[in-house]
Design a protein around this nucleic acid. Structure first.
Lengths: 178, 178
DNA sequence: AATAATTGTTATGATTTATATCAATTATAA
DNA sequence: TTATAATTGATATAAATCATAACAATTATT
């Protein structure tokens, strides 16, 4: 998530009072809490607020391992699909090939993943995790799982399953994670 | 939502078959669908996928009116809080003051909103919508509401309410709607 | 053999988000 | 009052994310 939302923005205004609605010419909303109004009634708004919060949480969770979300996804998908090519892995997680190349450079320099030229098609690079990469991924999965459970606990009994079921009904291509 | 996800990524690979799991040295996932594996079990992953899709939909919905999501939010929040200052509105929707200035420049040039120096504090700019801005906002609300209802319809009976209730349990500062 | 398509790279652009600095103004302290 | 600090909004600029175009190497197709 980067690039969305924030945790700063320490409400500059402040103060009590009640604000008025409407947009009649010259109307004034005196000091008090800002009314986001109908915004809060849209699924998109609530969805975004929740997602931004979770993603920021996710970033903080992975920071100790020096992993960005896209790097985590890459390690996880390579681990589950060893030997697949760059283009395949990149498409699965929704990253453009040019950007994916740079991402892989970083993982390779850290000794977490490696590219090997396929002998059947010498244009493509087969991807694998190194033992070090697998170990780091396992560590990351522990942290992310713990965070995920904490969020699930907030949702009450059955809340997590209900949420996942509802989210599945909202379309979302399988290839647009990060 | 800008800046996340995509609708491109036309699966380059393709083909049938079944892939293997695991990361044993030298293991190979032969042609077939990529396994995102555990990724799909995380709330954050599903939440992000759904949110990215909804946000892209949102952007397309507002394109005919030449409005970006942040512009829509700004118009809506100004309308609900006429006369509030830039800093207050910016904080409410989670935009940095420097970036919010440029956004307002655009709205002012199009005659949708206006800044007026407050006489009580001549540093600050009170914000209002113009009649034209209010009219455009009403038009935008119609489009966005229709889109929101379509999404709600996918969730089945009571699904929309259940989803909103669950999302409220996930923290998300009130001031981070792009 | 000639042409077209694919893979991964390089270079580069657009967008979004964030930080640092500043002038104008207001608030606070001595 | 005067001196100092804080606030508002603007400007310039950086950083991160996401995307497109063009290219060499390789493979597929005609």
């Amino acid at each position: 998530m980067e690039g969305s939302g924030s945790n700063r923005a320490a409400q500059r205004g402040g103060g009590r009072g009640r604000s008025r609605r409407g947009s009649e010419a010259g109307a004034i909303s005196t000091s008090g809490a800002i009314e986001v109004g109908r915004l809060g009634e849209f699924i998109g708004y609530r969805l975004r607020r929740a997602q931004v919060w979770v993603f920021e949480n996710f970033i903080r969770t992975l920071t100790p391992l020096d992993l960005r979300p896209a790097q985590f996804s890459t390690l996880l998908v390579i681990d589950g699909n060893p030997g697949r090519t760059q283009a395949e892995i990149a498409a699965a997680i929704g990253i453009q090939p040019p950007n994916f190349g740079a991402l892989l450079d970083g993982l390779e320099k850290r000794g977490l993943a490696r590219r090997s030229r396929s002998q059947s098609d010498r244009r493509s690079h087969a991807l694998h995790l190194t033992p070090k990469g697998k170990a780091l991924l396992d560590e990351a999965i522990k942290l992310v799982s713990a965070q995920d459970e904490q969020i699930g606990a907030r949702l009450g009994p059955g809340g997590r399953e209900t949420l996942l079921q509802l989210l599945e009904k909202v379309p979302g291509l399988a290839d647009e994670m990060i």
